[in-house]
Nucleic acid binder design. Structure first.
Length: 443
RNA sequence: GGAGAGGUGGCUGAGUGGUUUAAAGCGGCGGUUUGCUAAACCGUUGUACGGAUUAAUACCCGUACCGGGGGUUCGAAUCCCCCCCUCUCCGCCA
C-alpha cells in the first residue's frame, strides 16, 4: 500500500508505475471514491459534533444527580420543566442522528471500496529499474564463476538422484501428488548441510536466528502483499482463515506489525529457516521435470526492517544480496545477478534482484534467490512503524532475500559436482556438516 | 474439546450509563535547583483521519479510538450479542 496523499499529489507517477508493472488498478475510480469518502467524513464529523453537543445538553436536563440539575432546582425550576426542555432538545437530536445513520451506511460501503482499491495500487519502482514486460527483459548486472566444461556426458539431477538413491520423486508423487519428492540418505544430509551452512553464515553476519509460524492468519498474507492476488498460489486453511506461508518472509516481516518500534532498535535483521508451501497453480506444465518447481521446500530467508530512508534501504539491499552471493561462493557455484524489470517484479517492489545459479541440465541459469526492496509498501499494510529521533512515527522500510533454498540448490550442486563414475563430490564447505563425507557414491 | 476468569494509554492500574478532554502511579520529555550525577519540585504526555492555516508532518479546530465487530440508549470503557486473544483447571497429546 502506498500513501493516498502521494497517489493524489503524484497521480501521473503512479499511473506510470501501473503501466510499467502491467497491473490492474483503476486510479480514477480510486480517486473518485476517495473524494466521496472525504466528503462523507466531513459531513458526518460535523453532524457528530452537533450531536455530541446536544447529548451533553440533554444530559444536563435529564441527570438528576448532576450539579447543574441540582442548581436549576435550587433556583426554582421544576423537574417537569427540565424534562420538557430535555425532550425538546432530544427531538432535534433525533433528526441529526437519522442523517448520521445514513452517512454511516454509505461510509461503510465506500470504505470497503476504498480499501479494496488501495490494495491494488503498486509501489513505484526505483528510477534504476529497467522497464520491461517480463523476465526476458531483466538485465544482467554481473556474472561470477564459470560453468564447468564436462569431458564426459553429464547426468541431470533426476538421474543422479535416482542412481545414488538420494532423491525419490516417484514415491514423493505417490504420497502427495505431482511436484512432490523424497530426499533420503546423503540427499537429506546434503539438504540439511546446505541449510546449516546458510544459517551459520547469516548468523555470523549479524542476523538474529528465528523460528516462526508457517501457518498464519490471512491478515499477514495481505500485510506482506501476497493477498489479494496470490490466493491461488497459497494453501489456505478455510476453516481457520489461515494460510500456509510460501516463505518465512511473511512471518518475519509481519511479526512487528501493529507496533511502534524505537528508531534505536533499527535496523532489525532476522533470518529463519522454514518449510515453504506453494500450490504452483497457474504453473501447470511449467518446470514439471525434477525438483526445480515443487510444492514444499526449505528456505533460509533474511529480512531487514529499517528506517524510512532510501539510501539506507538501498545499502541493506546490497548487503542482503552480498550475503546470498557469499553462500554461493562458499559452494563454488557459478551464478549471475539479474536486475528484475518492471513487468516481472511484482506490485509491492521498489527494486528487485534475482540471483540465478548455473544449472548444467538446463544449459542455463535458473533462479535460486530473489532479493526485494519494498519501501514502506508492506509496512503500511502491516501498520509497522517506528518512532524517529524527532518523535514522529514513520513506516519502516522492509527488505528480504533468500539465503538458500533447498532442494532447488541441490540441482546445481549435484550436477556441477558430479564425477565421470556417477558419484558426486561434496563441496568443501558442506563437508563439516556431513560428518566429513567427501563423496556421495552409489552403494 | 469442556468449565471458569480476564483484555483499559509505553507500563502498572482505577473506573458498572451523563458534571469538557479515562483517576493515580511509573516511565519518557522539558524546566527549576545543582561542581557533576542523583534526588526533590514544577510542567508536559497516545494514534489515525479530516478541516483551517502554513515553509512545516509546527500551532489551532473537529471526529474516531478502552482487544475486534455489531446492538440498546438522547448519551456506552461501563449494558446485550458474535468473534479474536490471554490466563487457570480438566481432558487429549509430540
Amino acid at each position: 500500500m502506498i500513501d493516498i496523499k502521494l497517489i493524489r499529489d503524484e497521480t501521473e507517477k503512479v499511473r506510470k508505475a501501473i503501466r510499467d508493472k502491467n497491473i490492474a488498478c483503476d486510479l480514477d475510480r480510486l480517486i473518485a471514491v476517495d473524494d466521496r469518502r472525504r466528503a462523507i467524513q466531513q459531513e458526518a464529523d460535523q453532524l457528530r459534533q452537533q450531536s455530541n453537543e446536544l447529548s451533553n445538553q440533554i444530559g444536563l436536563y435529564k441527570n438528576p444527580k448532576g450539579k447543574w440539575y441540582q442548581d436549576a432546582l435550587a433556583k426554582g425550576t421544576t423537574a417537569d420543566q427540565l424534562k420538557a426542555e430535555g425532550d425538546k432538545i432530544q427531538a432535534d437530536s433525533a433528526r441529526i442522528k437519522q442523517r448520521i445513520k445514513e452517512l454511516e451506511e454509505e461510509e461503510k460501503t465506500i470504505a470497503d471500496d476504498f480499501r479494496a482499491l488501495m490494495l491494488t495500487v503498486p509501489q513505484i519502482p526505483s528510477a534504476k529499474t529497467p522497464i520491461g514486460k517480463n523476465d526476458t527483459q531483466n538485465v544482467e548486472v554481473r556474472r561470477v564463476g564459470e560453468p564447468r566444461a564436462f569431458d564426459f556426458e553429464p547426468k541431470d539431477h533426476v538421474q543422479l538422484g535416482k542412481d545414488l538413491n538420494i532423491i525419490d520423486i516417484e514415491r514423493g508423487v505417490k504420497l502427495a501428488g505431482t511436484r512432490n519428492y523424497l530426499l533420503r540418505g546423503a540427499g537429506t544430509m546434503l539438504h540439511q548441510a546446505v541449510l546449516r551452512l546458510a544459517m551459520d553464515l547469516i548468523i555470523e553476519r549479524g542476523f538474529e536466528p528465528m523460528t516462526v509460524p508457517v501457518v498464519v492468519r490471512d491478515e499477514m498474507m495481505y500485510g506482506t502483499g501476497y493477498f489479494p492476488g496470490g490466493e491461488e498460489q497459497a494453501y489456505r486453511c478455510e476453516r481457520d482463515a489461515k494460510s500456509l506461508v510460501g516463505t518465512a518472509e511473511v512471518s518475519l516481516t509481519a511479526m512487528y506489525g501493529d507496533e511502534i518500534l524505537d528508531e534505536a532498535q533499527l535496523p532489525i535483521r532476522l533470518a529463519a529457516v522454514s518449510t515453504c508451501f506453494r500450490r504452483e497453480a497457474g504453473a501447470a506444465g511449467k518446470d514439471t521435470y525434477g525438483i526445480y518447481r515443487i510444492h514444499y521446500f526449505e528456505k533460509v530467508e533474511q529480512v531487514v526492517l529499517c528506517k524510512a530512508d532510501e539510501a539506507e534501504s538501498e545499502k541493506h539491499h546490497h548487503a542482503i544480496i552480498a550475503n546470498a552471493e557469499a553462500v554461493l561462493q562458499k559452494l563454488e557455484l557459478p551464478y549471475r545477478v539479474m536486475m528484475v524489470c518492471t513487468g516481472d517484479m511484482g506490485q509491492g517492489k521498489v527494486e528487485m534482484y534475482d540471483i540465478e545459479t548455473w544449472m548444467p541440465s538446463r544449459k542455463g541459469y535458473g533462479e535460486t534467490h530473489s532479493a526485494s526492496r519494498l519501501g514502506e509498501f508492506q509496512a503500511r499494510r502491516l501498520n509497522l512503524r517506528y518512532r524517529g529521533a524527532d518523535k514522529k512515527t514513520y513506516f519502516c522500510h522492509t527488505l528480504n532475500n533468500t539465503v538458500i533454498a533447498s532442494p532447488r540448490i541441490l540441482i546445481p550442486i549435484l550436477e556441477q559436482y558430479q564425477n565421470a563414475d556417477g558419484s558426486v563430490t561434496v563441496p568443501e564447505a558442506l563437508r563439516p556438516y556431513m560428518g566429513g563425507l567427501s563423496v556421495i557414491a552409489a552403494r
